[in-house]
């Protein structure tokens, strides 16, 4: 089966489209310096650039990249503070496989935005992995965006 996979850049724009930009269009700190472009375009391109930091926009998205992009989106664009205690994420056996993604993965997992995969050991005992190299489909991306939207909605009511 061919997966409906998406790129890093497409994922960033799904997040922005589904969840919106931070209010304050004219003085938005993420606005790109493109005088000819409309403010909305300038902002969304600026945000996309910020949250895809370090990635090539046309690269195919994997789970660890999705975790980083989503984390930067809610933290840097919407100012949602990180959860202090990420120890419960240590139940993910592969948490430390990706040293620069640990916090991104832990934050997204513990907030329920991205899910773990249940595995079975040789003795039949269950354990969990995040599977950072795993693929993300368009459907997965839309589900992530929906959960982010819900988080942002609830945080506005806090």
């Amino acid at each position: 089966m061919i997966m409906d996979r998406i790129t890093v850049g497409e994922f960033a724009h799904i997040l922005i489209r589904e969840c919106g930009e931070k209010p304050g269009a004219e003085d938005n700190p993420f606005a790109e310096e493109k005088p000819d472009a409309k403010p909305g375009i300038r902002i969304s391109e600026g945000i996309a650039r910020r949250i895809t930091d370090g990635y090539i926009s046309d690269d195919m998205l994997d789970k660890r990249a999705a975790a980083k992009i989503t984390h930067l989106f809610i933290r840097d664009v919407f100012g949602i503070k990180d959860l202090d205690n990420i120890d419960p994420a240590e139940k993910l056996r592969d948490l430390y496989d990706c040293r620069v993604c640990v916090n991104h993965i832990a934050q997204m997992y513990l907030r329920g935005i991205m899910d773990a995969i249940e595995m079975k050991s040789a003795t039949g005992d269950p354990f969990y992995i995040f599977d950072g190299r795993g693929t993300v489909s368009v459907t997965d991306a839309q589900m992530i965006a929906a959960k982010v939207k819900r988080l942002l909605g609830s945080s506005q009511h806090d």
Binding site: R75, D76, G79, K81, D82, I86, Y96, R99, V102, N103, A106
Partner: peptide, 13 residues
């Protein structure tokens, strides 16, 4: 060893 922290800061945190 691997990193001393994975919860690095950002501007304001």
């Amino acid at each position: 060893l691997n990193d001393i922290t994975f919860q690095v800061g950002s501007d304001g945190d």
